[in-house]
Design a protein around this nucleic acid. Structure first.
Lengths: 76, 76
DNA sequence: CGTGTAAGGAATTCTGACACG
DNA sequence: CGTGTAAGGAATTCTGACACG
């Protein structure tokens, strides 16, 4: 599940987010996809889950820096 | 593990096979990737395992039609 | 701040074919 | 039979920027 194998397109399908949102979350250091030689991002299923959580938190009123500080997004 | 999320490039990395081999195995009905709107193949981790088994069998002297007839590649 | 979009380029994947054998 | 390759096109992804606010 930690294998970084998905390109951004399928991640969009799986999360319902836009490429723009995903790239922004990466820019803010909330997710860490790996890169192919060509520069394309590769995500894992874990990243997909995390991205969904990030978006939820943002919709709940949190900010990207809040999420970064906390490290984990979920309290369990 | 059955989620068809990987494009052919990563499958090549994961299996060590070439795109040509993977497409040929699909042509011979040994694997069944899904397609994106744009026509790109998407594979699952299960497909990756199957592809490795297919290639092993072929190296052992089997033919694609032998593999197709047997259905399963592994006897367990 | 978080996200949308148009812009141009680079990398990825696709198909059908010729080749060897 | 199974696989390599060059060919041209179409789809995908990338970055930096302007926009709103």
């Amino acid at each position: 599940m930690k294998d970084k194998v998905m390109s951004i397109g399928i991640v969009c399908d799986l999360t319902g987010l836009t490429e723009r949102q995903i790239r922004y979350y990466e820019e803010k250091q909330l997710v860490f996809p790996v890169r192919t030689k060509g520069g394309a991002r590769k995500f894992s299923f874990e990243d997909v889950e995390r991205l969904k959580e990030i978006n939820e938190k943002l919709r709940d009123g949190f900010h990207t820096f809040d999420l970064k500080k906390s490290g984990r997004l979920c309290c369990k």
